[in-house]
Nucleic acid binder design. Sequence first.
DNA 1: TATTGTTATACTCTATAACTATA
DNA 2: TATAGTTATAGAGTATAACAATA
Lengths: 186, 186
Amino acid sequence: MAAQEQYEELARQLNTVNAVKRDLARALPADCPPAAAAVLLALARGGEMRMSRLAELLAVDMSVTSRHVAHVADRGWIERLPDPADKRSRLLRLTAAGAGKLDELSERTAERLAEQLGDWSDAEVGELIRLMTKLRASFGDCRTPARARPLTPGPREAGRPRHSDPEPPTLDPPSPAGDRAAGSPA
Amino acid sequence: MAAQEQYEELARQLNTVNAVKRDLARALPADCPPAAAAVLLALARGGEMRMSRLAELLAVDMSVTSRHVAHVADRGWIERLPDPADKRSRLLRLTAAGAGKLDELSERTAERLAEQLGDWSDAEVGELIRLMTKLRASFGDCRTPARARPLTPGPREAGRPRHSDPEPPTLDPPSPAGDRAAGSPA
DNA sequence: TATTGTTATACTCTATAACTATA
DNA sequence: TATAGTTATAGAGTATAACAATA
């Protein structure tokens, strides 16, 4: 169990590490923003999957995923095939062009990382990956907390409204076992 | 030196760890978005400082910092004092109200982290902090690279080798004293 | 002329809500 | 009625450029 001071510091690092992400993003081509690259990478790693599964992997709302997927589909980097098991659903698959694009992106990103992290040991990079993965796992599926986490274990002080949540009197907890009970990320 | 596969994975984790940050952000009060909290924390840790120094600590452009600072100043959480040494500059200082606010924020954040990371060992949390800090340090001052690093992402659709340009002008040691001032005017 | 900080503008990413088409 | 996905809208965060005041 860590001290409060440690937690504060962790939160701080979580903020500033974003600068690294932005730096990496600048190495990407203009027609492929980081979110698009993430879609390609997830499909390359996880193989054919549905929107909902992809959204889970990317840790964002499905509406967001839908836009990013449309972006990469427009460019022919992925296909959206009908799901034989469910006509509402679509199966996403990387195309050859998408795989090629991803190679290019990965190479650039790795190049940049190698430039800056050249003096890190293999073990240290691995350890950072491991801990970040574990961090994500510890938070579970922390998207759309209204529906995904209807039970807020935290005390929460007085009821302050969230940013864009003036005051939803409509508690709709009716789908807790829906989809996020599925497999583990990564 | 790590393998390309590792670098890819690191980039991926850098993306998804954002979900954790967003989750933490939701624990904050509505009048204090994460960026405002970061300003308060930085001033609490680093003491009185100028805008430019704060921007460096937060790893964002000064224009961004200016907005966030205005936000917290409007709420009386910080003061902007004249700098006796340079009348263009302003010294930022946390007020008592700001310190109080920060306490509240830190408590909430730490609470959430403790909830989710309760089973982590002190050593593991410390190691994650250490590695994230090192990651940031390895990237140096990676803000506003447009002026510091003229190599632009650009489309580059056709299979151009990417070893043609990235190399020469990149020298930009993060000197703590002078804010990289090498400018290419419009 | 150079630098500190501010403001205006634009772009990316995100979530919420309303909608469709299936189930 | 519930679920998979899409689209419209709004909010936060960021960078660029033009600007003001001072050095």
